[in-house]
Simulated scan of single mutants.
Amino acid sequence: MKLGTFTVLFSKMNFEEMLDHVKAKGIEAVEIGTGCYPGNAHCNPQELLENETKLRAFKKAIDDRGLTISALSCHANPLTPDRSFAEESHNLFLQTVQLAEKLDVPVINCFSGTPGDQENAKYPNWPVVTWPTEYRDVLKWQWEEKIIPYWKDAGKFAEDHNVKIALELHGGFSVHTPATLLRLREAVGEVIGANFDPSHMWWQGIDPVAAIKILGRENAIYHFHAKDTSLDQEHVNMYGITDMQPFENLQTRAWQFRTVGFGHDMKTWADILGTLRVVGYDYVVSIEHEDAFFSADEGFTKAVNNLKQIIPQEPLPSLWWN
């Protein structure tokens, strides 16, 4: 496996300064945002697609430092009722797929998106209960009329460009659990897989090791985010896991994103990486830092140091003693 990072946390640095910084910390692969939620501080896909000279310079800057691109990330919501943002999200997806093909990047990271509850809806709707039955009806309509049709077309486009789609299982979006990922994958095909992030499993009450085994049986993990979560049971009792307080409310939130090792111990993280290896994932472990307790660089550095202790860096060995 290679140790990587999602470079949007260093968006205030210019591109080459960012590459030098993460390289000096021991990073081997970069995951780069192309727009929408992650922003495009380090990669403007339209500009690179239209200018071959800039594209070559972009790739050379990465190659010269001995780095690779693990994924291009266009997290957005192409299914939102907000037509302007849906169009922006969709166009960014198309550009990101085309750019990934030109850069020989095998996977792009996305969100599945969340539709509204009807054609004339104003906002996305995320049903999470089956009663009252209106929620069940909304969910059925969303999947049959919006989610599956969109991703069938998007999946075909990605396949035509030799790129796989890794959807992050993120609360608030239609694909947020192993079951919803596998439902979409069954409808669309193996072009769809997971950008697996344990932090989103923990707050939903899902054991990441068990989830990796479930998805691993289907060879459905295409990328991995290293991010932790801490839960405060006293505040879970008060607010539940769907706590709607801002992340700034450090004293009362039910759960918080943490840097690796500050929500769960390193034995837990070693089990996660070991299970990834068991199911055949031997790609990049990409640090995503969203820890409100640490600055960007401090949280990132602590994650690097913790993961270096446990990440398998050499190929799976033969059993020399057997």
Rank of each mutant, 00 (worst) to 15 (best):
E17S: 15
A194C: 05
W320C: 06
F224Y: 11
L139Q: 03
G66M: 11
G39R: 13
I221F: 06
L72N: 01
I147S: 08
D64F: 01
I148A: 10
G193K: 03
E88D: 10
I212C: 08
P81E: 05
V105R: 11
V278C: 03
Q95K: 13
N109A: 15
L184I: 07
W321V: 10
L231Q: 12
A211M: 01
I221C: 09
K267F: 08
L72E: 01
D232M: 03
W131I: 10
T259I: 01
A211G: 04
K146E: 12
L215D: 00
N77M: 07
R185M: 03
E119R: 14
A254Y: 00
K164M: 08
S70R: 09
E52M: 11
L319C: 11
V97E: 02
T5W: 00
R277V: 02
Y150A: 11
T242C: 07
W143Y: 11
G113V: 04
F58T: 08
L103G: 12
P45A: 10
Q309I: 02
N91G: 08
D20M: 04
D117N: 09
V304A: 13
K213A: 10
A194S: 14
D228F: 00
G39D: 11
Y281Q: 01
T242V: 06
H289D: 03
L139G: 01
C74Q: 11
E314R: 15
T34A: 11
I165T: 07
S199M: 05
E290S: 05
V163S: 06
